[in-house]
């Protein structure tokens, strides 16, 4: 019997990191571990470790993390070709 059943999969839409035009760079010295970047990330690619780490395989480069960081610890840099 076939019907439209799909299974939970990480990367269901592929490596969405390839969508990026800008990538976030975190200055860990400035980071105050408020974790706003983590909660506001629409893609959930920021992980809670000693400091925020970004999974660049899936980060789409929206820049919300950089925008919301209260201490400007995140900068968006253009992807090099």
């Amino acid at each position: 019997m076939k019907t439209a059943i799909s299974s939970p999969t990480i990367g269901a839409m592929g490596k969405t990191g390839t969508w990026r035009v800008f990538r976030p760079i975190i200055d860990v010295e400035k980071c105050i571990k408020c974790w706003r970047c983590w909660i506001f990330c629409p893609d959930g690619v920021i992980s809670r470790n000693d400091h925020p780490r970004i999974d660049l395989e899936y980060c789409k480069g929206c820049g919300i993390c950089a925008q919301e960081c209260p201490v400007d610890a995140i900068k968006m840099e253009r992807e090099k070709k």
Binding site: T9, I10, T16, P42, D43, G44, Y58, K60, I64
Partner: peptide, 23 residues
């Protein structure tokens, strides 16, 4: 910290829906 919305989904970059859904 549990994530029920898996990374690599099809939303536009900066999508508010996925921010809301994660939370």
């Amino acid at each position: 910290r549990d994530e029920y919305l898996l990374k690599g989904h099809a939303a536009c970059p900066g999508c508010p829906i996925t921010v809301a859904l994660r939370i």
